[in-house]
Write a protein that binds this DNA or RNA. Structure first.
Lengths: 112, 112
DNA sequence: GCAATACTTAGCCATATGGCTCAGTATTCG
DNA sequence: CGAATACTGAGCCATATGGCTAAGTATTGC
């Protein structure tokens, strides 16, 4: 369970940058070419491409090249790893809450 | 809506490190002192403290010092910012799906 | 075919990050 | 009081990150 560590790392790192989160948001509305995406950001194309590559290598988007145009598509499924991680943390929190409740109940039982 | 950017940044950055995620996991089971936490990790205390500070400054944990011991507690509410962000992305995806469905419906209507 | 377009590669640079040690400071315990 | 404990602060260091320019490659359109 959760030997995701390396994958989670990549996903969090990829999303820990405002430019890359903005790309994710844009691609949420549909596929776009690198050029179209890049036009929205105040940086040179090679700099922007690094972000695209980061998102791709960590599985958050997929890209394909047709002719001279590279098209980016969001990989929605990948975001599930975040849900999973959050769910796991909450499961841990629950367990603790349960133990606390058990403790309180035990106290009540043993203090007449 | 989502002028969270700076806050989200901090939260993602804070969680994009395996050590810090491990601390989060530990604290999910209950509060712990810095020393107790540190013992679980193969690094010097000052190095570890940086991680604690990072988690604290980005709101994921809270710490208090009593005597010479600093105790860390998870700030569960803070994780909601991740749910919010995920929900917003999915809302965007939904909108797109809706537009696509509309498009298909329109096609069917206009091609008898 | 030649110019414009759309990346791509290479390499530089400044700053940030995550680790370290060494030397404090503040509490607690015998 | 003096030693042990639990951080804390300062500063060093290597590597990673995010930006840049300049030059190259591959497609497309006239």
């Amino acid at each position: 369970m959760a030997q995701y560590s390396a994958e989670l790392d990549g996903v969090f790192v990829a999303l820990a940058d405002p430019t890359r989160r903005a790309v994710v948001r844009h691609l949420g509305r549909g596929p776009k070419s690198v050029g179209d995406l890049a036009r929205e950001f105040p940086m040179a194309l090679p700099s922007f491409m690094k972000h695209v590559r980061t998102l791709e290598t960590h599985g958050l988007i997929r890209t394909t090249k047709t002719g001279r145009v590279r098209t980016c598509v969001l990989n929605r499924e990948r975001f599930g790893i975040l849900d999973d991680w959050l769910a796991e943390q909450r499961r841990i929190w629950e367990e603790r809450t349960d133990r606390l409740e058990q403790f309180v109940t035990d106290q009540e039982d043993s203090t007449p």
